[in-house]
Amino acid sequence: MTEAPIFRRTWPCALLLLSLLWCGPAAAANQPPVADGPALDTACGETLAGLQTQQEELARDIRRLHRELAALREDLTQPGLNEILGGIGYILGLFGVAFFVMGRKNRGPGKD
């Protein structure tokens, strides 16, 4: 029974030791992140937000480029002024040749 107080005294001591052992390293390990945590988190968040806005801007730009590309392709299928004038020239030229041939035929061969 004399040991009981000792036991009673060592038991919390052991508990204390144990708890120190248990919590010490964990607390020691946790200590620095807990100190820098908010700063690192805000830095990460800022970078992330920046990246996201950048990504959104890029996506918007690419969409715009796609639209412009489609419009350009559509424009390319439309005939330009050169082709129109060329076509009119072809028509008038062909009829000019036909007119010439008909004129020669009407005059008859060997009359000129």
Binding site: I88, I91, G96, A98, F99
Partner: peptide, 20 residues
């Protein structure tokens, strides 16, 4: 007929351009 050709040419050109 020969005399018609210029008219035909002009109308052909108009038709050609009209669809543009």
């Amino acid at each position: 007929q020969g005399e018609e050709l210029p008219k035909v040419a002009v109308v052909t050109a108009s038709f050609f351009v009209a669809s543009l």
